[in-house]
Every structure is written in structure tokens, then in C-alpha cells.
Amino acid sequence: MSAAQIRFATLWRREVNRFMKIKKQTIGAPLLETFLYISVFGAALGSRIDKLHGIDYVVFVIPGLIMMAFATNSFSNNSSSILQQKFQGAIQDQLSSPASPAELLLAFSLGGFMRGLIVAVLTFLVSVVLVGLPVDHVLVLIPSLFLVGFFFSQLGVLIGVRAEQFDDVAFAQTFVLTPLIFLGGVFYSAALLPQPYETLTHFNPIYYMINLVRYGFVGFTEVSIGLSLLALTAATAALFLVNLRLFSRGYRLRA
């Protein structure tokens, strides 16, 4: 391995090691939360709802829950890891190393991505066993999940870098991210909503992400897959470039 490869692998390993050391909180709790949603909305409520667009309600809901788990874990890992290290000053050890802004940004991003991926994959495996969750369009599912994870990793980095106190991270997660995810159609089909809520849902970017992932699993979508993939790719790339600019300038990282 070259010195640059060792450096990047170490930066990434540190991020993964951090969440694995507190895996009850970082892996166990999100898994439990997801299965509580499946129990309440799938098993309890689902037994009364029958089918949505010809799909069992519990099967209809699970793709959105997997996407939600991937998104929230990627986001919260990166935002809290960066803010915590800024608080402790420990981030100075990485910042004073020869690592480039791109290496630092990618390593932080991949830490959250890995945590989101682990929770999403575990949820998927259990869903396959419990309710026989299908995978209809794997070639749409894999890039969609990859982009969702990377987008929210970037968003977590952005919030973590900007944040000056833990309240800033909590605000973004509780008052912005969670409402957007819940109102993006995880638990329902937007087509069933009365106006103006159906139209408003189309302005929520999470709606398109949920549809992409749902299409990948069960083959049902309310939006254009090609257009959604394109828009998500563009949004992820734009966010990455914004973060790269912040890391290069040392915004709220270097004095």
C-alpha cells in the first residue's frame, strides 16, 4: 500500500471503529427502531389495510423504511462524529496530517455510509426472512441506495462542519430531516393523498428517493425512475462539491 492509501484507509477505519465501539447505540438502536416501525405499520396496521397498488402493505412500507434507515444513520453518524471531534479538538490530528481535503471528506463520508449500509442490509435480510421482500430491479436498487447513502452522508458532513453546538445537529435531524422523510411517502402512497398534499409531496426530494428504492424492491413507482436517478446524482455531486469547497477553505474546521 502507498502512503496515501494507508492514510485514507486509516481515516476511514477510524470512522468505522468509532461507531462500532458504540454499536448498541449506532447499530442496535436503529435496527430496533426499524423493526418497531415494521411491527406497528406492517403487522398491526397492515392487517387492516390489505393492499396498496396491489402490494401487501407491509411489503409496500419496508423499502421506505430501509431507505429511511440508510439515510438517517448516514446523516447522524457523520454530523455527530465531526461535531464531537471538533468539540474535543481531536479533529486537529487529522487536519494537521498530510491528508488532502478530498481524502478527509471522503473518509468522513464513507464512515456514515458504512453505518447506514450495515443497518440497511441487516433490515433487508430480516425482511426477506419475515415477509419475503422481493428485489425486482436490482440495477435500479443498488445505484439508488448507493446515491441515497452518499447524499445523506454528505448532508451529515455539511451539518457537522457547520454546527457549533449539538443543538444545531439535533435541529437539522428533528425539524428538517425527519418531517421530510415521514412526509415523503414512507408509510403511504402520495397518489392517495387529497389535494394540495399530493402536489406538495412532489416538492419533497425524499419522495423521489423513496420511490426509487421502492421501485428497486417491489417494482412500483409514482415518479420517473430515469429522471429521479439523474436528479439524485446531480444533487449528490453538488453537495459533494460544496463540502469539498468547505474542506478546502477549512470552513469552521481551521481557524
Binding site: A3, I6, A9, T10, L11, N17, I22, D93, S96, P98
Partner: peptide, 30 residues
């Protein structure tokens, strides 16, 4: 350059040995 800063800026999540190991990794040491 090696820096020993004024305020101890150590990562609370790491052990003593990990702190040293990661630092050397950031500098590309095998």
C-alpha cells in the same frame, strides 16, 4: 512536523494504543 498542542486534543473513543496507531496511519506509516 509533529505537534504536541497546548490543550490535550485526544479522541475519547480511542484507546491509548489506537491513538498512536491512527496518528501514524494518517502519516502513511505501514
Amino acid at each position: 512536523v509533529g505537534l504536541a498542542p497546548q490543550e490535550p486534543n485526544i479522541d475519547w473513543f480511542l484507546t491509548v494504543a489506537e491513538t498512536l496507531d491512527y496518528h501514524a496511519g494518517y502519516f502513511g506509516m505501514p
